[in-house]
Design a protein around this nucleic acid. Structure first.
Length: 697
DNA sequence: GAGTTTGAAACT
DNA sequence: CAGTTTCAAACTC
């Protein structure tokens, strides 16, 4: 996929590309990484990433793909950052499928294959690479950590595919470059790479102060390697040779906006309830927006979580197939310093907290020019490569930025491309066990209907909005690039929709961006939630513009107010409105709706109960004997019993045959034998029942 | 499932 | 800004 051209960027609102606000962050971050870079040439994480697992799992746990010996003494442990997302039971099946090997295995393969210097990309590899290029234009390469391979191992297994990296350079075409690993040193670096978990809990940048990150690294193998820790904007250097894992936590104080615009809320994504945020890896209370530098090549794949709003991730699939083999030319130094991020779970979080304030968090990329960061799931072999170069910036004002907007750096320009990922994306990734990062087609978690739930409207989370799956659109003429399309209007990519000639996808990012720009020009608040709170002090939700119904009486879903289950307000221009508090028609409808809902719930509950009972019954392996008499459980008729019965019947048949009995007589004898068998079974069951009852007594 | 109705979005 | 057209969802049969 092509990198978004600068011209396209020019179409976007100025605030989108405003990078001023993040300068401080970049600087600070750069500074913070200097300590490591001195020795490891490590690049910083280009963007705020929040790796979190599902609720059950330890949040933001960094699983360092340790080398076999788990020795922290790897020579270049700090060179690579691995973000591992702990997998949970709800991990993506697809990811699992793609991951034939464990994360460790994968890492080792990558390292082993480095000797070949060939990059093989295959679709099923599902290596997710998200690459972006920094101002320097240095390509960012993510590589899977080599955990198993011993340090210095250079032998290449011909069977093992060389790790592929998608390198995206600013303005340049994406290209696959072999990991720098052809050299022993490089391999060592990869092998000794330490996992780093980058967690962005929250950011509350203040206008007066540069963005503050708390970066905690559990460090790296080399004792000599300084450990950098950035706390509250300060970079603390610590040396630790003990801890093999690195944890980088980017936090931002709550309550302050990046731009210090109090009270102003980011419109990029719908607000989420704190509880939901909590589910997203313990970042409760904050809204995260994922901004991912875009790689633009064909291998970039779209990640969309059904139902999520504003969650767009541009994924580059690192493949190992020969079809896309890239000559493993001399790897660049940048490759050598690539830092893979291992995500052990399907939930990959790279998000920028969206604070209530209008600030968009910037992902402060480390100034390192050569670093490559990859996020791969242990189950999917997917890698997310994020820009390692000094990340510029995150646009201070995303207020009007439509969800899913991808910002790409101009070639040679200073901007790093970003994919603006809707905040819900992360959440949904974690919430949906069926989400796959690798395969677009595999997103059909819920047959035909996207599993994404609508985001809470204007911060108000309703049961309906959060649990109801989004309907697939059926657009035919709008190319899904107009607000007619619900997907587009909600900032979502079309997925599992029934639309025709759809342009609402990454494959048509250019057109999509233009459409977004057009919509924003027409209405700067086009992507803001329509349902918001009323006047000051009013707690009731209301439509921001009001409806204009004329014939529906505002009691049908044609009416946006009614559809949102809110009553019409004074700003509505509807005619013959019946959607008001005292309306008898409305009350009647509500009662009917409630009754219908109750019925549905009851039916659902009944079905669930029945299903559970059936399942439980089938799962039983031992007979259950009711204490109070009644029928004996069928479970007495076990396989063994059946076999014994059949043997008896066969034996009887043989006897009849040997005695040359007539067929009728033989059949009678067999049936008689069958009756005996049945009686034996019943008697045995009854005896067991009595025994059981006596035991219970 | 086809056709109609409806109102938001888009256009003039 | 108002009127008209386009569009896709909601609704009806």
């Amino acid at each position: 996929m092509d990198v978004v051209s600068p011209e396209l960027n020019s179409l976007l609102p100025d605030e989108i590309m405003d990078t001023e606000a993040i300068e401080d962050i970049s600087d600070s971050q750069a500074h913070g990484t200097n300590t490591q870079s001195k020795t490891t040439n490590e690049t910083t994480v280009p963007m705020e990433t929040d790796t979190s697992s599902n609720v059950s799992s330890a949040e933001n746990t960094l699983v360092a793909p340790t080398s076999k010996d788990s020795s922290p003494s790897s020579s270049s442990a700090g060179n690579q950052i691995t973000i591992s997302v702990s997998s949970t039971t709800s991990s993506l099946p697809i990811l699992k499928q793609s991951l034939a090997t464990s994360t460790t295995t994968q890492a080792s393969e990558a390292s082993k294959s480095s000797a070949t210097c060939h990059q093989v990309i295959k679709q099923e590899g599902q290596k997710l690479l998200v690459t972006a290029i920094g101002k320097s234009g240095s390509p960012i390469v993510l590589q899977l950590p080599n955990s198993k391979a011993p340090v210095g191992q250079t032998s290449a297994d011909p069977k093992i595919q060389t790790p592929q990296f998608k390198v995206v350079t600013i303005g340049g075409r994406p290209e696959l470059k072999p990991l720098v690993g052809c050299t022993t040193n490089q391999m060592t670096a990869l092998q000794t790479q330490q996992l780093k978990a980058v967690q962005i809990a929250k950011k509350t940048p203040t206008s007066s102060a540069p963005i503050k990150f708390i970066i905690t690294k559990t460090v790296n193998s080399k004792g000599a390697s300084p450990q950098s820790q950035v706390v509250a904007g300060r970079v603390l250097t610590q040396t630790s040779s003990v801890l093999p894992t690195k944890t980088i936590t980017l936090t931002e104080p709550i309550g302050t906006s990046l731009q210090s615009i109090p009270g102003k809320k980011i419109a990029i994504s719908p607000l989420k309830t704190p509880s939901k945020s909590v589910a997203v890896g313990g970042v409760s209370g904050s809204h995260f927006k994922t901004i991912i530098p875009l790689a633009t090549q064909p291998n970039v794949q779209q990640i969309q979580v059904p139902g999520s709003r504003f969650h767009y991730v541009r994924l580059v699939t690192a493949t190992t197939a020969s079809s896309t083999v890239q000559p493993s030319g001399p790897s660049t130094n940048s490759v050598q310093t690539a830092k893979p991020m291992m995500v052990s779970t399907g939930a990959v979080r790279m998000s920028v907290p969206i604070v209530p304030a209008q600030s968009v968090k910037q992902v402060a990329p480390k100034p390192l020019t050569t670093a490559v960061q990859g996020v791969s799931t242990s189950q999917t072999q997917q890698r997310l490569i994020m820009p390692a170069t000094p990340l510029p910036q995150i646009q201070p004002n995303f207020t009007n930025l439509p969800p899913g907007t991808v910002l790409a750096p101009a070639p040679g320009g200073g901007n790093v491309g970003y994919a603006v990922v809707p905040a819900q994306y992360v959440t949904q990734l974690q919430q949906s066990p069926f989400v796959t990062l690798a395969n677009n087609s595999s997103f059909s978690a819920s047959s035909g209907v996207q599993t994404q739930a609508r985001l809470p409207v204007n911060g108000v989370s309703t049961t309906e909005s959060t649990s109801r799956p989004r309907k697939p659109c059926n657009c035919t003429k709008s190319q899904c690039l107009k607000l007619y399309c619900d997907c587009f209007a909600n900032g979502e990519f079309c997925n599992n929709c029934n639309c025709n000639n759809c342009f609402n996808n990454l494959e048509h990012e250019t057109e999509r961006l233009k459409a977004i720009k057009t919509c924003l020009d027409r209405n700067p608040e086009a992507f803001k939630p329509k349902i918001g709170k009323g006047k000051e002090g009013e707690s009731d939700r209301r439509h921001s513009k009001g409806c204009n119904c004329k014939r529906s009486g505002c009691l049908k879903n044609y009416c946006e107010c009614y559809e949102a289950k809110i009553m019409c307000s004074s700003i509505c221009k509807c005619i013959g409105c019946k959607n008001f508090e005292e309306s008898p028609e409305r009350k009647t409808l509500m009662h009917l709706a409630d009754a219908a809902e109750v019925r549905v719930q009851q039916q659902t509950a009944a079905k669930t109960k029945l299903s559970s009972q059936i399942s439980d019954l089938l799962m039983r392996t031992t007979p259950v004997i009711p204490t109070g008499g009644g029928r004996l459980p069928y479970t007495f008729v076990t396989k063994e019993v059946l076999e014994a019965t059949c043997e008896c019947l066969l034996e009887r048949a043989k006897c009849s045959e040997q005695t040359l009995q007539p067929q009728a007589e033989a059949e009678r004898m067999i049936l008689e034998e069958f009756g005996h068998c049945l009686m034996s079974i019943i008697n045995s069951a009854g005896k067991a029942k009595v025994d059981c009852a006596s035991i219970n007594c």
